[in-house]
Write a protein that binds this DNA or RNA. Structure first.
Lengths: 217, 217
DNA sequence: TTGAAACTGTACCGCTCAGTTCGGTACTAT
DNA sequence: ATAGTACCGAACTGAGCGGTACAGTTTCAA
């Protein structure tokens, strides 16, 4: 909730690198939108939060929708980085999967992760491309990463996928990490998961997965 | 989208059985809310859709929020019935799980199922109890039912859950059915899944689950 | 036939909110 | 000094929408 803003270095077309004031506005908008959603947030709230005049907001962002898109895109971009750096190590597949599950749950169940999902799902009919942006910044790269790792693990003989492709197995694995807790906390915004609960869940998922596809050594 | 309305026979307190006109309004409200969400729907749209005067709407429902709650509750209620009638038959655990998975996906990925989820997730901060209602009408009874079946299947020796409780196994199973496709179609509202895709996914999930916990016979 | 209740249609109120306008200020570059 | 740029603050516009008021119409039971 209090971290900084990440901006796609030049996501679409030719966007200038965003001046300091624009960043101030964007950061305030992030906070307000994540807290109230698109419809619930007013430009006055954003302006006040940023400590900036109304004219300044509109000088940098043509309208509320564009500002909203900018927030969602930067937030998706900020989210998508973490999982990438996990390396494959032969014989350590359980530990690796566990690390992925923990990290992914951490992001998905964080206050901002849940708020982002809520916003995107709520407004996806008005902003169809944000749905794709979100999916391609979160679930998709995670699946790709897991697919990669599973492929290597299979090569190394650590797992045996049988009929399944690595892609399918990765989708099942990543999906089942997220599923239950994500829907639960999306629909119960007053509760927050403890670290222990998250770890318990990811252990459950990793155990189940390896019981299916792990080599019994 | 075109089906009828189900009303909890007396969900909270003392609600009269809802007269014909009230049902007309509720049905129209259902259609409009599912199509546009709470914020996007206007009472004029509902009134017009129902072919009813504005006064009539407010004669039966004190305000927009109450009407919205009524729609969501009736929709949750209508959704929650289907899975119940599946009986356990020894030796047929694969078929049973498959049937559950198919039915559940059918509901979750239907136009109205996705629209309902979108609405609830979008407005859960404004209507916290609707989140609980939704969860307890959809995911929860499904998990209970699966738990029951898994318990019986374990008794009958068709599966072997190891360290897992039936509850945990059921949550993993039901969660992994929903996960990937639900999030995908929530964020891609223009696409719709084919029957083949749904069946392929549920086969994948049942296979994975039984590979973990099924007895190799 | 009568009278209450439910309903219609429309005008209207009050408010919120996105976006505009404009006079004025501070800073920078030339 | 001058001109340009970025910003402030505050008033304003205009539209949309939830909800109300009210006069007239239909329905139906006694």
């Amino acid at each position: 909730m209090t971290d900084s803003i990440a901006v796609p270095s030049s996501a679409f077309g030719a966007e200038r690198p965003l001046g300091a004031k624009a960043m101030t506005v964007l950061k305030a908008a992030r906070k307000v939108f994540l807290a109230h959603g698109f419809a619930g947030a007013t430009t006055d709230m954003i302006q006040r939060e940023a400590g900036v005049s109304k004219s300044t907001v509109y000088a940098h962002f043509a309208n509320k929708e564009i500002l909203f898109s900018a927030v969602v895109q930067s937030e998706c971009f900020a989210t998508s980085i973490n999982i990438r750096n996990i390396q494959f190590v032969p014989g350590k597949i359980r530990e690796i999967l566990h690390e992925i599950a923990d990290n992914y749950l951490q992001i998905v169940l964080s206050k901002s992760g849940l708020a982002l999902a809520r916003m995107v799902i709520a407004e996806v009919e008005r902003f169809p491309n944000l749905g794709k942006t979100f999916y391609e910044a979160g679930p998709k790269p995670c699946v790709s990463q897991v697919k990669e790792l599973l492929f290597l693990a299979q090569q190394a003989g650590d797992i045996e996928l049988g009929e399944l492709t690595a892609e399918e197995a990765a989708r099942v694995f990543v999906g089942s990490i997220r599923s239950e807790p994500q829907l639960y906390y999306l629909t119960h915004p007053e509760e927050t998961p403890t670290k222990a609960q998250k770890q318990q869940w990811s252990k459950l998922i990793v155990d189940t997965f390896l019981r299916s596809y792990g080599k019994t050594d």
